[in-house]
Design a protein around this nucleic acid. Structure first.
Lengths: 205, 205
DNA sequence: AGCTCCAGTTGATCTGCATCAAGGCGCATC
DNA sequence: GATGCGCCTTGATGCAGATCAACTGGAGCT
């Protein structure tokens, strides 16, 4: 049941197939739906007035996103597939029928958990803390949705990770190698096996 | 109409007077209300598992907070008065009467705007960018609620600011002095006059 | 008045990360 | 195959900010 390109209201649960790099919505687009990731990975990106891009979140299968537009009716972020992905569209009632939204909202809020606000900013502390937190967070969210949290496929580019963590690609690369050398993880290309990632990044050489 | 200490449901709009340093709610407390700041300033603080505190936001008069508990029914953050403050309690219906919440929510969401998620993480970029953004953000929110955005009273400690911006008190202090010296602001103690704070912190010596 | 105590400022030094720069490797296209 | 182009890694250098430390000024105390 693929999504049709017309302007009519999409059927609830319609699928959207996205190649890597294609956008699901852009800033200013009317926010008529939420989306659930089924496969792949979606990043949401905030474009600041000065043209700079900041990655807000990477969404894994099972997570819902698109709520950035709740107060304004139009999106403020851009959602882009990091790799080939499949999303499920959850259409919202139009303004006129808004009362129905209210029935939906509690469920949505429950679903979201922390998806709406990446409530624990990952871009804090040292580079190693950031990378560690990033990996642990990703693993935890994968596990929460029944996926493997031991072997991660970092399908986003190093540059995306660096942007997300407010650091540089070189630093991301070096930090991953460093964690590899200390046997906390095992990096091969875009795959990372988590071996023994310290919970709190306190006592390490 | 002061708040009474009993366990009965508070009247809608009951006031809470808070001395500096006293908590309005703590992590784990049942979330029976939202709060609106009427006077003073409230900080919300997240306590991580390893005992470290991270300040999430400083709320100015007119802002609503306490939404951190929406999915869980109990607070995950702590709300503490930074100075002597007055809050207005907005009781939420109990679970059983939840349908009513749904009528409330759209209004709440509209009210909140960006209050729920400090959606633009301030702890990004260089120290001067952080401090500049912090001041501009505070000024804008004060203005939005009809208060003076030119003269700021930083009633929180330098240490709170540093925590919030993920840096050190010495750096906050130096950066404020630096901005003072370049005539962007005028610092006298806890009062800061905004003179000509650069919008984008690009071209500065 | 003395006194301590705490918040803030300022100075000196050290270090982690940004920056600049040079390969390495996979994957296209010719 | 050769060539070019991204993406990643690795090395060398410099600087912003963390850290350590000393000093100041105000509030509260006896």
């Amino acid at each position: 049941m693929a999504h049709r390109d017309g302007r009519e209201r999409p059927a609830a649960g319609a699928f959207r197939m996205l190649d890597a790099g294609t956008a699901l919505f852009r800033p200013g687009d009317a926010a008529t739906s939420l989306f659930a990731v089924r496969q792949g990975m979606i990043k949401t990106v905030h474009l600041s007035e000065d043209g700079h891009e900041r990655i807000i979140a990477f969404h894994v299968p099972g997570e819902v996103f698109g709520l950035d537009a709740f107060s304004s009716d139009s999106h403020r972020c851009e959602a882009v597939a990091v790799e080939h992905s499949v999303c499920c569209e959850l259409p919202l009632p139009a303004r006129a029928e808004r009362p129905q939204v209210q029935g939906l909202l509690p469920a949505v809020v429950a679903l979201l958990g922390r998806a709406a606000a990446p409530s624990l900013p990952l871009a804090r502390g040292s580079a190693r803390e950031r990378v560690t937190r990033f990996l642990r967070d990703l693993a935890e969210r994968l596990r929460r949705h029944g996926l493997d949290g031991e072997r991660l496929r970092l399908s986003m580019s190093r540059s995306d990770i660096a942007n997300f963590l407010d650091t540089r690609i070189e630093t991301v690369s070096r930090t991953l190698q460093q964690l590899h050398r200390m046997n906390a993880i095992c990096v091969h290309g875009s795959t990372v096996d988590i071996i023994d990632l310290p919970a709190s990044d306190a006592a390490l050489p």
